[in-house]
């Protein structure tokens, strides 16, 4: 039997909003320690990896490892019926389940909704992502990053990100013209979610499709801050922490000059 009870249903709503437009359906691997999801967009250019540890749940029981093939649009429809402060319970049999139950309990306990969603058979490709030493880590406000990606999308379909010791520059150009946004490394880190910290081992200069970055920033409500990890010879990693009990990580392969 797999059963997980989340005190704050709003978190699951935000997680679905973060993945459903990038990955239509995905395999939710549940084991004794955590629920993990890894999925790629149809063009295999971007990947999302979600991890939610058992400690995020008020009650978590997973007698045997079970993989739930979830259609994220169906799951999202159910979660649209949940309030942020509803308790959400996920339940599934642990022997090749063909469905998953979701129970929503209102905070005052007066309203209980239960849904059964059919699981889907997915033969998705999983990628092995090696531990990587990145040349640069940029930690910044998630709202600021979302704003930069949205603003630069008006000028071009790609953003060039260049990191130096002092700052990180986001540039885009197209027929409208050219736009540069430069964030300077904050000297004092008083309010974490408003400061920009650049941890640089060596300079990087990479270009990425804004279409995907604007899909990644759907995770903005999950965390006040976002961390970008960059290396010349590796995909970009955009990470949003889920409190201290998990994360959503997006990976995006760069565009290169032909």
């Amino acid at each position: 039997m797999f059963e997980a009870k989340l005190q704050q249903g709003g978190l699951l709503k935000k997680i679905l909003e973060s993945v459903k437009d990038l990955v239509v359906d995905g395999l939710w691997d549940c084991d004794g320690a955590a629920i993990t999801l890894q999925g790629m967009d149809s063009s295999h250019v971007a990947l999302v990896e979600m991890l939610l540890r058992a400690e995020a749940f008020e009650h978590y029981r997973c007698d045997r490892n079970v993989t739930l093939g979830m259609n994220h649009n169906h799951l999202s429809k159910i979660l649209k019926c949940a309030n942020n402060d509803d308790i959400v319970i996920l339940k599934a049999a642990d022997q090749n389940p063909d469905s998953c139950s979701l129970i929503l309990e209102s905070k005052n306990g007066e309203k209980t909704s239960d849904f059964v969603v059919s699981l889907v058979r997915i033969d998705t490709d999983q990628l092995g992502i090696p531990e990587t030493e990145y040349s640069a880590h940029v930690k910044m406000s998630s709202g600021e990053f979302q704003r930069i990606c949205r603003d630069l999308s008006q000028f071009g379909d790609a953003v060039q990100i260049t990191c130096s010791k002092q700052d990180v520059k986001f540039s885009s150009s197209g027929e409208t013209g050219k736009a540069n946004i430069t964030l300077t490394h904050s000297a004092t880190v008083d309010k974490e979610e408003e400061s920009v910290t650049v941890d640089l081992k060596e300079p990087v200069d990479l270009t990425f499709a804004l279409r995907f970055l604007n899909l990644f920033t759907k995770a903005t409500p999950i965390s006040d801050t976002v961390t970008l990890s960059l290396s010349q010879e590796a995909p970009l990693v955009v990470e949003y922490k889920i409190g201290d009990s998990g994360h959503i990580r997006y990976f995006l392969a760069p565009k290169i000059q032909e």
Binding site: V45, Q126, L127, G128, A253, P254, I256, E258
Partner: peptide, 14 residues
Amino acid sequence: KQQQIGLSHYYDFL
């Protein structure tokens, strides 16, 4: 002109 690379250029399929 910029060309989009795929993730499989960097990571192996399991």
